[in-house]
Design a protein around this nucleic acid. Sequence first.
DNA 1: CGGGTGATGTTGACAATGTCAACATAGGCG
DNA 2: CGCCTATGTTGACATTGTCAACATCACCCG
Lengths: 198, 198
Amino acid sequence: MAKKRAYHHGDLRRALLQEAVRLIQRKGVDALTLRAVGEPLGVSRTALYRHFADKSALRAAVASEGFRMLTLQVLEAWNGHGRNAEAFQEMGMAYVRFAMAHPSHYRVMFGECVEASTDPELAREGAAAFQALVDALTWQQQNGSVRPDNPLRLAQFIWATVHGIAMLAIDRLLESQQTDVEELTRFANERLRIAISV
Amino acid sequence: MAKKRAYHHGDLRRALLQEAVRLIQRKGVDALTLRAVGEPLGVSRTALYRHFADKSALRAAVASEGFRMLTLQVLEAWNGHGRNAEAFQEMGMAYVRFAMAHPSHYRVMFGECVEASTDPELAREGAAAFQALVDALTWQQQNGSVRPDNPLRLAQFIWATVHGIAMLAIDRLLESQQTDVEELTRFANERLRIAISV
DNA sequence: CGGGTGATGTTGACAATGTCAACATAGGCG
DNA sequence: CGCCTATGTTGACATTGTCAACATCACCCG
């Protein structure tokens, strides 16, 4: 029995999660409805209750999936550009690009409904994403290219900046001055480099 | 006729708005229910529809009120500390303190449900808050204490950082390392000063 | 001063939604 | 083969936002 995937539907949990992500990305968070998730899968509402405690658990799973994707993207940018100062900036760009590409999904990851404290998997994936940032900073500190402050505090500072840009961009609060988000992110990265240099 | 406040209830609009703010602060955003707003005022649901287009218009009004309060707080910090570099840091502290003191209210101000484009008052109040930051920066540029970059871009950069700290703090994502938010904000302000100096 | 008129508030109803209890089914294990 | 548990369904219910129809009150115009 390779998987437990052969009862009635076959890995319905993964299908539900995938459909939930699709719905959120295409129609927004409000469109995430138990009935709307079940129907495309030929399954009726409440089927979900055999795989998730309730709707908020489904949202938490969506958020976890988001953090997993985000971690992959930023790590690819960091590792794929040589783990230097330039690669660090690409890491920031990748972060903001992810948020811009999946605005509703990103919002679920930081929504008030999903409490990281209640879902251990979500806490784990969120911590993993943050750890990628911490690791990149410690690496640069050993390099001598980043000042030897507490790496966690540096990481929180930088995280706040990119998260803030992402949030403001998603909320369309940067459009007033026809701002190019890519350009703003580049500018922020440049200034941050000054701020965290020795 | 000094006011229009003398029909049945007497300025019900303001009472509804005030009760909505109270509800959000004390019970969270989900507790903001048309029935829950009307009942304490001895008024029935749907009474609200004579003063707000719908529930989201009420939320927008709450958000506008929040921006008004926020603008007052940061301007008081800026003006009350002498409009210098130190005052600018106090401005940032005041921003984050407001968010920490009114987490649910702050979240409504940046929630996805409230689209600034649909409510002109909200757009105005939001722009006013942002303008306070821009003004403080231009002032310092004329001082020579801030580099002569585009002040709007500088403002967006700094706004993103404090907004990010506020959001992460509200989402309790800074508690993992038992972080003191005040301390993190101070650290961020110090690093930002380096980043925006000439 | 009196009736009408529009602003303001109420009641009833309805559809959508999350959730639970009771029921149905199926697939593997004894 | 027969049962047992995992899995999925149906019916029901409370909550909620919203609308239409109705009620009421203040003020204005004659």
